[in-house]
Simulated scan of single mutants.
Amino acid sequence: MEANSAATGRAAAGETRASGGKEGRYHHGDLRNALIRAAIELAAEGGPDAVVLRAAARKVGVSATAAYRHFEGQSDLLGAVKEYGQQRLVACMEAVGRASEGVGPQAARDRMMELGRGYVRFAREEPGLYRTAFCRKALGAVGITEEGGLADAEGEQPGWETRSFELLTETLDDAVTAGLITPERRPGAELSAWAMVHGVAMLFLDGPLDTLTDEESSYVIDRVLTDVLAGLMSP
């Protein structure tokens, strides 16, 4: 009995030392959020592959055992960082989109252009989080609805992992209301628009566009967005 108590005490002391290794990184009772913040930093530096539970635990200064009390495993932690990445992406899109608030076809067009610019800007400024926001790991099953939108296996709208897609969908609906896009062009338009904007963003990250100057980059982004809108606005 005494030997077991001593072993338990030594184990507890070891975890305390691990937890205190970087004093001030988290408050007692807030370890989960501290691990998420550490994982966000890892993702920003190295993308989704860098989000490892043990690495996050080391960054916070706790044992891996303590970390596993808050997350079932790697995919659980990655899912939390993925959600944060989507939140940051949407915040970037909405920040520039608010500059074009208003009614009418021109306001709707300006808003779509600004949302697209915000999307690509986030990818270029925070590539690690952008990659994590769309990583295949921790991504639930998603299907296409008859209306051309996204839904999970139960037919419900997915959460933050596709919030940027939902924002695009809402903006396209507003464009129809404003008379910018005809109702006949609307079904499935978010899929083609998303594919083109996401594609150009990835060309900046993993393709030849990463060598362009700022002026050249702005031209390419605006050209792609203009072509997307031209297709959507055609009779």
Rank of each mutant, 00 (worst) to 15 (best):
N4C: 00
N4L: 09
S5Q: 08
A11K: 13
A12N: 09
E15A: 15
T16I: 14
T16G: 00
T16K: 10
A18Y: 05
S19I: 01
G21I: 02
K22H: 12
E23D: 05
G24L: 10
H27D: 08
D30N: 07
D30P: 00
R32Y: 06
N33P: 04
A34W: 01
L35G: 04
A38W: 00
A43R: 10
G47N: 09
D49N: 14
D49F: 12
V52D: 15
A57D: 05
K59S: 14
A67K: 02
A67F: 05
R69Q: 10
R69Y: 01
F71N: 05
G73P: 07
Q74T: 07
S75Q: 11
L78G: 07
L78S: 06
G85S: 12
R88C: 07
L89P: 00
A91L: 00
C92K: 15
C92Q: 15
A95Q: 12
V96H: 05
R98A: 12
R98Q: 11
R98W: 03
S100L: 07
E101D: 14
G102C: 02
G102I: 05
V103S: 15
V103A: 13
G104N: 10
R111L: 14
M112S: 14
M113V: 15
E114M: 09
G116I: 10
G116C: 05
R117C: 14
R117H: 09
Y119T: 13
V120Y: 01
R121M: 14
L129T: 04
R131G: 06
A133L: 07
F134A: 00
C135K: 00
L139N: 06
L139Q: 08
V142E: 11
V142A: 10
I144R: 09
E147Q: 12
G148S: 03
A151L: 06
A151Y: 10
D152L: 12
A153P: 09
E156H: 14
Q157M: 08
P158M: 09
T162H: 11
E166S: 13
E166V: 11
E170Q: 14
T171H: 07
D173T: 14
D174Y: 05
A175M: 11
V176Q: 02
V176K: 03
I181P: 01
I181L: 04
T182E: 09
P183E: 02
P183D: 06
E184V: 12
R185D: 03
P187G: 04
G188F: 04
E190H: 00
S192R: 05
A193N: 02
W194L: 02
A195T: 11
A195K: 12
A195R: 12
V197Y: 02
G199Q: 09
D206S: 06
G207A: 04
P208H: 12
P208C: 12
D210P: 00
T211R: 11
T211E: 15
D214Y: 01
E216S: 10
S218C: 15
S218W: 07
S218V: 00
Y219A: 14
Y219C: 03
I221E: 07
I221K: 02
I221S: 03
L225P: 07
T226C: 05
T226F: 07
L232M: 11
M233S: 13
M233C: 14
S234P: 00
S234F: 01
